[in-house]
């Protein structure tokens, strides 16, 4: 182990020269990762655009059976959770351990609320046999096969988003553990900041999903 003359910050990894280099690398790494996420969701959005342009009626009809109330409520929940996350990032960078904990907990709670509401929405779909597959049923006016396509996309898109939320929840718990151990300070709070970026990204995905799945169908009607 090569040791530098001055005392090394405990969070500084061996292969970095200083905390700044480490911080810059972590930032660039996270942004690059988010870029891959954009491409991944991009593939899905592409499928959505192709299918919607082909089967507009079915998509309009199906979208009328999604609950704007629940979807809108969830949108607000997520936006507020982004705020609490931003506050957590700020307080961690100020070195306020207790405040950081509160905001992280708040974010986690809001994330859980979102998933809870999602559960309610999914249950309703399951009850009405709106799950694509052999038992799919549709009593609306549009062609059931194409509506099935809409619900396929709905479940894959919101499902992938929900999976990201669950991972985000895990990351929040990990941050709380680190915070409890007093790892964050004015000099070093990179993990909170990175998870913050991730959390905002997952939020933004929903900001696109909500209008595409719930709203624009009503506009076309």
């Amino acid at each position: 182990m090569s040791t530098s003359s001055e005392s090394k910050h405990p969070a500084l990894a061996d292969h970095f020269i200083d905390l700044k280099q480490q911080y810059d690398s972590a930032q660039l790494g996270m942004w690059s990762f988010l870029l891959t996420e954009v491409m991944m969701f991009g593939g899905l959005f592409m499928c959505y655009i192709v299918a919607r342009s082909q089967f507009l009626e079915a998509f309009v009809d199906a979208s009328h059976h999604l609950s704007i109330g629940l979807g809108g409520f969830n949108t607000i929940v997520l936006i507020v959770s982004s705020l609490t996350m931003a506050m957590a990032v700020h307080s961690a960078s100020e070195g306020h351990q207790k405040k950081t904990f509160k905001f992280l907990l708040g974010t986690l709670f809001l994330g859980a609320v979102f998933l809870g509401v999602k559960y309610i929405e999914y249950s309703a779909k399951i009850e009405h046999n709106n799950i694509p597959g052999d038992n799919f049923e549709w009593h609306g006016v549009a062609n059931p096969a194409n509506v099935e396509l809409f619900f396929g996309l709905y479940f894959v898109m919101t499902g992938l988003h929900a999976a990201h939320m669950i991972i985000g929840g895990g990351l929040l718990i990990w941050l709380m553990v680190l915070n409890h151990k007093g790892r964050f300070s004015k000099e070093f709070s990179t993990p909170v900041e990175l998870v913050g970026l991730y959390w905002h990204f997952v939020d933004i995905v929903w900001i696109f999903l909500f209008p595409l799945l719930y709203l624009i169908g009503r506009h076309s009607a």
Partner: peptide, 23 residues
């Protein structure tokens, strides 16, 4: 830029085969 698109494509294929999703 490329690999995530392959990932989502084979994921869709798996969902399609397993659950009859239809895209």
């Amino acid at each position: 830029l490329g690999t995530p698109v392959l990932a989502i494509t084979v994921a869709l294929l798996a969902v399609e085969r397993g659950l009859g999703f239809g895209i």
